[in-house]
Simulated scan of single mutants.
Amino acid sequence: MRPADTDVAGYDVGIGGGRTIVSLGAASLAAAIEVRTKLLAAAATLLDASPDDLVMENGRIEVASANGYGFAIAEVAARARTHRGRIGGTGAFIRTGVPAMAGCCTGHFIEAIDIPIFAVHDCEAAVDPDTRHVEILNYTVVQDVGRAINPSAVHGKIQGGVVQGLGYALHEEVTIDGDGRVRQAGFETYRLPTAQDVAPVAISLYEGAPSLGPLGTKAGGEVPILHVAATVANAVSNAIGRQVRALPMTPPNVLARMQGRTVG
């Protein structure tokens, strides 16, 4: 894989929004289809047949009803290179029929990657009555992933997303002093979640929901971050008997809510 040269590369909507496998997969699939079409056309010339009558399988291109009459794909490619040049293909991820935004050559990003994703998060949390520390006891995620090409990688993305969500739900806080300076000048005061703050995440992947992604794939990396704060806030609210409307849920902020004071 080589870095793209923006002077010669075509436009597409990129790989934002956690959709690397969707964007790169769709572009790779389009390029592969073009290569396949060119190989069949080259083989059709060699076999004096129509491309529609050929099959490509087991590393060969053969006439469908000729009992093995054909060539190895490598041989077709080699002969084609001699007479036509190298066989190649290009592909990009851009949804057809989406009008471009004014001043934007890539099309409207959201409509172009319209792949809705659904998830359900469930959290059990405990609030220490003395310290007001929030402890996550267990966490469960059911996520629509379209099709999990690499389930273990998807599990890792969801686990990481939950941990990141727990960070801004419970720990990560930025405050400004009277002179307009950020009080949290480093990781000693801007606290990130550690292994001791994280409970095991039970993950269930739901596959099969429609997707315009190649092979039915969807994004998986950023989605699990979005639900965590609201899920934990609901659990803490049930524990203390008051609504939680501000983040993070640090012990001082939890105490303020238990006393009926506004946070933030």
Rank of each mutant, 00 (worst) to 15 (best):
G156R: 03
Y190T: 13
R257W: 14
V232M: 09
A43E: 04
A92C: 08
A199D: 08
R242Q: 14
G97T: 03
I117L: 09
E34S: 11
G14L: 12
I149A: 13
I115E: 06
G213A: 10
G107E: 01
A235G: 07
I113A: 08
G241W: 10
A77D: 10
P99W: 08
T37E: 10
A31S: 14
G89M: 06
H108G: 02
A44K: 06
D122P: 01
T37I: 11
V244Q: 03
S211Q: 02
R242H: 15
R84G: 12
F109C: 02
E173R: 08
D7C: 12
Y168Q: 13
V120N: 15
Q184S: 05
G220M: 01
G103E: 15
R147H: 15
F71P: 02
I15V: 15
L255N: 04
R19N: 03
G260K: 02
Q164W: 07
A239V: 07
L215E: 14
Y190I: 12
I117C: 03
P251F: 03
C104K: 12
G213R: 01
T194A: 10
R242D: 11
P129L: 03
P200Q: 11
G70H: 02
V145Q: 11
E172C: 11
H155M: 00
G156I: 13
M101G: 09
G16Q: 12
S28I: 04
L137I: 12
V141R: 04
C104G: 05
R60P: 04
R245E: 15
V127T: 01
K218D: 09
V198A: 09
R36S: 05
D53K: 00
G260V: 02
I87W: 02
A43S: 13
A78V: 06
G91P: 01
V232K: 03
V244K: 00
Y139M: 05
N150H: 14
V198W: 01
H121D: 10
T82P: 00
V35K: 00
S211P: 09
A246Q: 06
M101T: 08
T90R: 06
T82Q: 07
T37G: 08
D128V: 05
Q159D: 15
V22L: 08
D52P: 00
G264W: 11
P151R: 11
D144L: 02
D48I: 04
A230L: 01
L192Q: 06
Y11P: 04
F93W: 05
G221A: 14
L255T: 12
V134E: 05
L54H: 01
V254N: 01
T45F: 08
G167P: 05
R181V: 07
I115A: 09
H121F: 05
A126C: 05
I73N: 06
N234C: 11
V154Y: 04
A233T: 02
A148S: 12
T96H: 06
L247Y: 14
C105G: 13
G241E: 14
V98E: 01
R19L: 06
V127P: 00
R257V: 15
T217A: 15
D12L: 02
D197T: 11
T106Q: 13
S152D: 14
E75S: 10
Q164G: 02
S204C: 12
G68W: 04
N150M: 12
A100T: 12
I61T: 03
L29W: 09
R95L: 10
